[in-house]
Amino acid sequence: MTSLSSASVSPPKVAWWKRLPVVHQLRQSVGLQRGMLIAGLIIVGVFLLVAAFAPWLAPYGYSQLKDADGNFGAQQPPGGDHILGTTVGGYDVLSRVIWGAQTALLVIVVAVVLSIFLGIALGVISGYIGGWLDRVLVVIADAVYAFPSLLLAIVAAIIISGGQSNLWSGIFSAAVSITVVFIPQYFRVIRAETVRIKSEAYVESAKVVGTSSVRIMSRHVLRNATRSLPLIFTLNASEAIFTLAALGFLGFGIEPTSAAEWGYDLNKSLSDVTSGIWWTSVFPGSAIVLVVLGMTLVGESLNDLADPRLRTRKRASGTPAPAAETTVVPGGSIESAADIAHLEGRP
């Protein structure tokens, strides 16, 4: 994204850092959309910091049951040594919430990286080469896509870990289960883009010059087909958290002695709720909500900014805002939505 060749940049030169994906959208946004984007970025930032510095932030270890004063005790109400209380298993709630951020981040990173690589590679190849390979892959991807993703993740989790696991195999099996669900989504988006780009004039000219298929796919098609990825990334990162938590909630997650995982804690708190013990469920659950909220706010704002019909524009007509590279409208700012429909030639 950042390494656009200088030829493709329009004359008013913009500093390189202002063209970075998120920075660019931040500068482009106004009003409510800007507020949502900033709020989302702050929440995601805090999540990343907590995940990175968990060992220093958490008062106790994630599987610690006692300290110098003896056992923590089960289901202690918030206050005193344990600000957020202790769980039914005798763990410190605050520590498990903080350590849980680290587990969640690891799973997101592994899952999204794996599915982006596999999904994009399959999508570009399938869309560009076409023929029977394309048809088979599309039918399979559609079948998998129509499948309830949680059930698919459960099946994957059973296969990979047989149901129970330590830290790395747990993280890896959760991540792969999520990847299986995501590949068809990336595949479909990238394939559709590839099929469209394939018939563009610049791909034709590259073929005429005698460029190899691999080079066309990697340089011409891939670069242009991946514009919508930051958006899918944020949406899938939040889905990764859901899937991880859901697997944990159903008892197919990571063992409490290997890592802290919010879904597992919620599962164990199920019986607490009936007896009015709220702190074991409310805090890990809120952690999930906050992280997903942050990522969704960022994703939603990026989506709206990329869609010219939904983007709120600066009202001031003094300096026209630079158009997004994702915009279909050539140049400057346009005030009314009707103008855009006209420019795009859409019905």
Partner: peptide, 14 residues
């Protein structure tokens, strides 16, 4: 959207 169904269920129950 950001609230997992099982957490929403737990809160409603509570």
């Amino acid at each position: 959207y950001a609230t997992p169904v099982f957490f929403a269920g737990l809160l409603l129950k509570l």
